[in-house]
């Protein structure tokens, strides 16, 4: 079955940009994992261009979280390049992924989904 995902990678020195265009669902998850692993292995800083992602599901978000952890443990950087697509943004919201304070304890500052830049900026004394 032909699927609609197109993955391209552009490297400049030790920095790479991985662009995902089309659907990123369970069907494409193995292929996407391979591309991510390969990129993380070959560059020190990886940018993800997700603004053309069309259909996505929770398996994809999980994949991105795992990629973030891989980067953190291998001392690499992972960033989102620009805005994610509208569909992906909706998915993140519906799946409870728009975080306030980051995820992985030690890697909260670099969490892809943190809305407060990893700074635990909240008042506990109200």
């Amino acid at each position: 079955m032909e699927h609609s995902l197109k993955i391209t990678r552009t490297d400049v020195g030790k920095e790479g940009t991985l662009s995902l265009v089309g659907d990123v669902t369970m069907t494409e998850v193995q292929e996407t994992k391979g591309a991510l692993l390969e990129a993380i292995g070959e560059v020190d800083r990886l940018y993800l261009d997700l603004h053309q992602v069309e259909s996505a599901d929770v398996s994809f978000i999980q994949l991105l979280c795992a990629a973030h952890r891989e980067c953190f443990l291998t001392k690499k950087d992972l960033f989102l390049q620009g805005k994610v697509s509208g569909n992906l943004e909706t998915l993140l919201e519906r799946a409870g992924y728009v975080k306030q304070c980051g995820c992985f304890p030690a890697a909260r500052e670099s969490c892809l989904w943190s809305v407060c830049g990893g700074n635990l900026n909240f008042d506990t004394r109200e």
């Binding site: 692993l37 999980q62 990629a67 891989e70």
Partner: peptide, 16 residues
Amino acid sequence: VSMTDEIPRLSELDPE
């Protein structure tokens, strides 16, 4: 809120 503590690193992840 998604509770993502148990997501492993990519190399150890079974994406299915």
